[in-house]
Simulated assay, not measured.
Amino acid sequence: MSKKILAVLSEYGYWGIELVGPLEKLEEAGYEVEFITPTGKKAEALPPSYDTTYVDPPLGTCVTTPLAAEKVKAFEATNRLETRQNLSELIPERPYFSTPDFLRVFEKYFSDLKIASEKVTEEYAALLLVGGSGPIIDMVNNQRVHDLILAFYKKNMPVAGICYGVAPLVFARDFNERKSILKGKHVTGHCIEYDYHDGTGFLHTDLNMGPPPYVLEYILSDAVGPEGQYHGNFGKETSVIVDYPFITARSLQCSFEFGEQFVNVLDKGLKRYGW
């Protein structure tokens, strides 16, 4: 099995420890993590994720610990994210239906996607979707991210998402079947009690979205259906769920536990955890 993991990062800001936490656990276990962004631009940690004075509005407390801030600043100083792949060059874009000679173009898309999917799943053992507010803009409803997820899912290979890195799993669907890949599964993600009322912001833009554009708890609950279950675990410090092939984590407090269970899935064949 490959010892390489592919991590998808937003170009509009990722939450520092949600990458650095699992990265540390994966590297301790001998895995090499490589990075990819939607259009190849460098990913950067959101400033609150290394600011120990930042008070999270819904939780009413400083959520960035001195240890997390130190680890995130140290990682950013390594310039490791200078080396990254461009998702738009790896996965083809699905054409518009108004494209001239649509059927031939559509057939080519599927043919090219099959080749790209085979290549990425041969090179990497698993996929990591890193959270933060940035993914709302360029990961959650990104067809290429969806197709990347499906490449691993269709080969029954681990797909791990934390915080808003869980959200793309709701929308990643086979184009013809259009059914949620989370149907019948157990997952976690931002519970409504953790959601902002205001201040959802991003790097490289002055946009204050206010609240997130969707309630992650609601769309996850709908996606898993009556046979599955969403676990918010509100009141518990962490919430990490493994229902293979998915490893999901609620928020930044789960980063190290998330990484530990990711390694357990890869090395020990863990199929269920947290429920």
Rank of each mutant, 00 (worst) to 15 (best):
P226E: 13
G60I: 07
S117H: 10
V145S: 03
E217F: 12
D101Y: 14
H231G: 03
E227Y: 05
S10C: 09
G16V: 06
A116T: 11
L59E: 06
Y50H: 08
V8G: 02
M139Y: 02
L87N: 11
F97T: 15
D147P: 06
D56Y: 14
K268W: 11
E28N: 15
K4D: 08
D174I: 04
L266S: 11
Y109I: 10
G131N: 02
A125S: 10
V120E: 02
K183E: 14
Y31T: 07
H146Q: 12
S255T: 01
V166G: 00
V240T: 10
E122T: 10
G189W: 05
P226F: 12
A160I: 01
K71T: 00
M157D: 00
P212M: 15
E89H: 13
L26W: 11
D222H: 12
P245L: 07
P245R: 05
S88V: 08
R80S: 12
H186D: 01
I137D: 04
L216R: 02
T238V: 13
D101G: 09
L67C: 02
A223Y: 04
E24Y: 11
L23G: 06
P158D: 06
A125Y: 04
C62P: 07
R80Q: 13
K236T: 06
F246L: 02
V120N: 05
E28H: 12
I91D: 09
C62M: 13
T248M: 05
G259F: 05
K185N: 02
T205D: 08
K114G: 15
V242K: 11
F97E: 15
T205G: 07
I219W: 01
Q261V: 05
L26D: 14
K236Y: 12
G165N: 07
T78V: 09
V55R: 03
T78G: 10
F258D: 05
V145Y: 00
E118W: 11
L207V: 15
E18F: 05
A68L: 04
S10V: 02
P168Q: 05
G60S: 13
T200C: 12
G199F: 13
T52Y: 02
T53S: 13
E44T: 13
F152T: 03
K41S: 14
L129R: 00
A160G: 11
G228L: 07
S88D: 14
K42D: 10
K236F: 10
L216Q: 14
I181Y: 07
W275Q: 09
V263L: 09
I241W: 01
D243L: 10
S239Y: 00
R104H: 08
G274P: 12
D174F: 06
H146R: 09
M157A: 00
T205N: 05
L9F: 02
K108N: 15
H190L: 15
D101I: 08
A151M: 05
T39K: 11
H204I: 01
E24V: 12
H146E: 09
D147M: 09
Y12G: 01
E122P: 06
E70T: 13
P58R: 06
L9I: 04
G225R: 11
I181L: 13
E193F: 11
A69Y: 00
N141A: 10
T200A: 08
V159K: 00
K71N: 06
R144F: 06
A77Q: 10
P92D: 15
D138L: 13
V159C: 02
H197C: 06
S133G: 14
P135L: 02
G21I: 02
